[in-house]
Design a binder for these strands. Structure first.
Lengths: 353, 353
DNA sequence: CTGAAAGCGCTTACAG
DNA sequence: CTGAAAGCGCTTACAG
């Protein structure tokens, strides 16, 4: 029995059937050069017929090659500790898979500095990298980078936001459209008929394909689909410092009677800070992310709702997906949208990323 | 360099230093019999000195032994599909670790039938089991079982609820006290001063150490700590069928002016069904778990809040903890309390276990 | 383009 | 109580 079983599987059996050596089978399996097309075809046919699954224990034992994954995400900044959470998830997954010979190389960049992003990309030595986990903060630049990865056949996974039309292994992050849509749903409960609503995009990078705009679109479409007639204003603020943001907000609020403000990212704390200063807390304020700044304003009642989308889990699952693919040749779902958690001052103490 | 490195590690090096064979080192590592105390001590000292970490690839390649985990949880019943979620998480983790030679054996029991629980326990062949994941639904019986596991040195992990004072490897589930506490916090917002509140425990098993009582305690303590003067009634219903539950509820509601009802488990749908039938929707109703029955009543407005505690994740993480310990000798946190998610009709469509 | 042999770091019989 | 040898299923050099 067991002798029979063992004959029916493994490189040895493939070699026996193909009448070649195990070395040659190995060459075919790993797509190495130096095998005649004829032998290659034969071996591949047998591999298929046997539904051969390599023994990953034997493989990693024999090949002392280390698998290296590059991680390209924003650094924690003074303005926000948002990226602490994905990094934590990445480190958690990294610790879990380190016994299998996987090493991480981290490339952290300033989310407000496109050049820093490009510099980090340039500093990655792709020769030694079997996979990349990245947050494509700068869309055009990230798109160029992943094109390079594709030609080199290096798999990559997006977290936090994705770039549509690219061939990533998978994506772990919000369904941007839906989070905007849900925000609108929440705000609907809190404004009266006809009251004005303000959408605020705060980012140095706002262009046609930016992901904030996909949230905005979801938000607007909720009102359209539900035939709600509240006027929707919007303002794009292209600097993130408090002075600039507060001035911009002040201006709009002077000119309009705004009942609710929807900030499309974690910068909501900057707006909250301004509103708190004016002492006017009559407006509803909704934004994103469980950062420590936002949390303080949420607890103080200056922010009404925070929408969170499992930043830790994005990092954890993103890296695991890369591992499953590279080491076990397993592919999961391509798009993995995180749940949309609604955090209020009531449940915030119990929230876990 | 590399020759030097390889000399400094592994069984081979330990054997060399101890002046014994690799076989003997192996015997010591696995605590097998047939080694003199002197040799044992010497080898152990060297293992410690070298901080020896076995190569799990080589180990599983050489030892064709399969690792088996037993999973002992309730079956999905007609009354509730709650246990679908933990099972899903367990299967997910099972698929992830199956390449490492881990097999699961599932023992599902009827949550209303203590004998079924005992029968399943009896049918587990502990000789072939390296770890157990269990939900200790029947406390005394489960306690006896884990005592047996302890004498046999088989590690076990609790999910969903734990038994205090036992030496489980870890626990993944709610902080029962806190979920009761948070429920009280929510209800506080929804009742007026002095209005009566009803606590409902529905379970065939309600005794002094039952976990529903820990929720009740958290609930009561919130009111005490915050010096709220709402009268709190409570009723223990020891059968789970609709006819019996509805009659019990009817009786209390006839005698008391109840403004809010807190059901301490997923049976809240049974209460919702009754209230819906009476056509009286003036009372606030809070309960637990994202079952399909509860969800329907939540959407219809018959249940106001559901508290959920990541049932899928409990299963997933519980099994992974067992794996990490048995295969990698890694121990994590002992108590892993799940976040307390508040589900309303607004966000229920976006909830993920 | 291909094969034969050694080796990865363990465990498993078997022999004494 | 202990050791020498073979083997797990792959990959890696080396030789031709």
């Amino acid at each position: 029995m067991s002798a029979e079983d063992s004959e029916l599987t493994g490189v040895k059996e493939i070699a026996r059937r193909a009448n070649v050596s195990r070395g040659t089978v190995d060459r075919v399996i790993h797509n190495r050069t130096g095998v005649s097309q004829k032998t290659k075809d034969l071996v591949n046919a047998i591999i298929k017929e046997l539904d051969y699954q390599p023994n990953i224990f034997a493989r990693s034992l024999a090949s002392k090659k280390q698998v290296v994954f590059a991680v390209l995400i924003p650094d924690v900044s003074q303005e926000t500790n948002y990226w602490e959470a994905p990094l934590l998830g990445i480190q958690e997954a990294g610790a879990e898979i380190s016994p299998y010979g996987i090493t991480l190389k981290k490339y952290l960049y300033d989310v407000n500095d496109k050049n820093a992003f490009l510099e980090q990309i340039a500093s990655i030595d792709l020769d030694g990298v079997q996979g990349v986990l990245l947050a494509p903060s700068f869309i055009e630049e990230a798109a160029n980078f992943v094109k390079k990865l594709e030609t080199r056949k290096i798999p990559y996974v997006f977290i936090n936001s994705d770039i549509q039309g690219h061939n990533s292994l998978s994506y772990f992050g919000p369904d941007l459209y839906k989070s905007g849509y849900l925000s609108a749903h929440l705000i609907k409960y809190l404004v009266k008929r006809g009251e004005e609503i303000l959408i605020v995009n705060i980012s140095q990078e706002i262009d046609n394909e930016h992901h904030l705009l996909r949230k905005e679109q979801g938000f607007r479409n909720y009102f359209i689909e539900n035939k709600l007639e509240n006027p929707i204003l919007k303002i794009d603020i292209k600097r993130t410092d408090y002075a600039y943001v507060s001035k911009s907000i002040q201006q709009v609020l002077q000119e309009h009677q705004v009942a609710a403000i929807f900030v499309t990212n974690s910068r909501v704390s900057t707006v909250a800070k301004y509103l708190k200063k004016t002492g006017d807390s009559s407006r509803v304020l909704i934004g994103f992310d469980y950062t420590k700044e936002n949390l303080a304003f949420l607890k103080a009642g200056d922010i009404d709702f925070l929408i969170c989308q499992k930043p830790r889990e994005q990092g954890y699952k993103g890296l695991m997906a890369l591992y499953q693919f590279v080491v076990h040749a397993k592919t999961g779902e391509k798009n993995n949208f995180m749940p949309i958690d609604i955090i209020t001052s009531e449940n915030c103490d119990f929230y876990i990323n």
